[in-house]
Design a protein around this nucleic acid. Structure first.
Length: 416
RNA sequence: GCGGAAGUAGCUCAGUCGGUAGAGCAUCAGUUUGUGGAUCUGAACGUCGCGGGUUCAAGCCCCGUCUUUCGCCCCA
């Protein structure tokens, strides 16, 4: 039997309504904030990601689906959206117009990782990006949208963690202080973090190793390295979040894995997810546009893992007791199809959701089928009904049955 | 990429000391013509993940492999 490749899965008919539910909410909430959808190709030139995410990150180093096409161009299945979106914004001159650009996206992404709960090789992200504003107000708008969305889809147990990693100068200053501290204590660092010390020292901050955690108590904090501009930005973000009534916790150890972040970084966490406890995250990226060959454009955004949202919703019982119904099941008891098909066509024109037998089931079998598809009503069309010019309709919940004239059938309410 | 656990009917799972596989749920059928759900009776349903090996004999033991899962790593 041929199976889906490792780390991928089918969304089955019995599950797809959950995805449609989320997609509907994405649309509703982004409409509320006047964000517009941007769709980009599933694959991009490899350099879109290699030049932006960071050469030393695992994503670029070992997780990208990179291949050469038949004309030897190096292409990569997109592992994330922000870099692709910035590529598109530059290519299409989106930021050359006045004002800010409010964008959202939803779609599949690809990383060659070892699958686990909430971690797949093809996974889906929903996200938004707000381009062209350096103001803390745009950080806050994006956070407001994210927080609103999470509440709208029915997640109540979660925590928003925020931090600032400052502008470039502050970050470089902190990087030096931190590297110095860890070098002085290198023998106490975990093996993993010794490597991180060379590649991405900030990542040591969110290490899970007890050795590192002990060391971090006395480590210099990034807040002490923030310059005036960075501090002002961060403080305003916090004040405005408070004014909006958005709950957050500061976590000075929160950093992000991708190289392009600056100033505000944040993460939404749920304890229903196990090791992959983060279901959304993002931050500001003021230097990404210029890294990808554009002008300096400040921007901020976030992404959410859709599979992780689904896990949270499923585990919190959001989809329990979902009952799918159809309005009507037509029970055929005549060979005279013409009357039936004429009626079916008119009923569907009137918006009645209906099914009927396609398997030549007998009378009893058709009722069983009506029951299985959870029909609110059944309608019997037999030779008796046709000769009497009447139809028999039955309410499947109460079991009550009555007759109705042919010409009145379109006025009947099958929805209740 | 590293370490642990698991894979048996459509689903959830039993399967003892190695002796050719079972339950519940679901499915299908049930005293001649047009009435579903509950109960009862019966039936059907298996490449025991896949491939090797040991053995008279393997779901069970050994090796490999694939997939899932829990951590590490990474990240949404």
């Amino acid at each position: 039997m041929i199976k889906t490749p490792r780390g991928t899965k089918d969304v089955l008919p019995s599950e797809s309504y959950k995805w449609q539910y989320l997609e509907k909410k994405f649309k509703e909430v982004t409409d509320l904030f006047n964000y517009k959808e941007l769709r980009t190709p599933i694959f991009e030139s490899t350099e879109v990601f290699s030049r932006s995410i960071g050469e030393e990150t695992d994503i670029v180093n070992k997780e990208m689906y990179t291949f050469n096409d038949r004309s030897d161009s190096s292409l990569t299945l997109r592992p994330e959206m922000t870099a692709a979106l910035v590529r598109s914004a530059i290519e299409n001159s989106l930021t050359n117009t006045a004002g800010v650009q409010r964008l959202w996206y939803f779609g599949p992404f690809f990383r060659y990782e070892r699958p686990q709960k909430g971690r797949f090789r093809q996974f889906h992200q929903f996200g938004v990006e707000c381009l062209s504003s350096p103001n803390p107000d745009s950080d806050v708008e994006v956070l407001h949208l994210a927080d609103k969305l999470i509440k709208e889809i029915g997640i109540s147990e979660y925590t928003l963690f925020i931090n600032s990693i400052g502008n470039k100068a502050s970050r470089e200053k902190y990087n030096n202080v931190l590297v110095q501290y860890f070098n002085e204590n290198k023998d106490k660092l975990s093996e993993n973090s010794k490597e991180r010390l060379d590649k991405n020292p900030l990542r040591i901050l969110d290490s899970k190793s007890p050795d590192d955690i002990a060391l971090l108590d006395d480590a210099p904090k990034i807040s002490d390295s923030l310059d005036e501009e960075s501090q002002l930005h961060y403080n305003q973000v916090k004040e405005k979040l408070t004014s909006l009534g958005i709950k957050f916790m500061e976590n000075h150890k929160l950093v992000r894995g991708l190289d392009y972040y600056s100033h505000t970084v944040f993460e939404f966490q749920s304890n229903l997810l196990g090791a992959q406890d983060s279901f959304g995250g993002g931050g500001r990226y003021n230097e990404l546009f210029s890294q990808l060959g554009g002008k300096d454009v400040p921007a901020v955004g976030f992404a959410m893992g859709v599979e992780r949202l689904l896990i949270i919703l499923e585990e919190s019982g959001k989809f329990d007791n979902i009952e799918e119904q159809i309005d009507l099941y037509i029970v055929k008891a005549t060979k005279d199809d013409s009357v039936i098909y004429n009626l079916i066509s008119k009923l569907r024109d009137n918006g009645v959701i209906l099914n009927y037998d396609l398997l030549d089931k007998n009378f009893k079998g058709q009722f069983k089928e009506a029951n299985r598809v959870n029909a609110k009503w059944t309608m019997i069309i037999g030779d008796d009904e046709i000769s009497n010019n009447k139809l028999t309709i039955k309410n499947m919940k109460s079991g009550e049955q009555s007759e109705i004239d042919f010409e009145n059938i379109l006025k009947f309410n099958f929805k209740d």
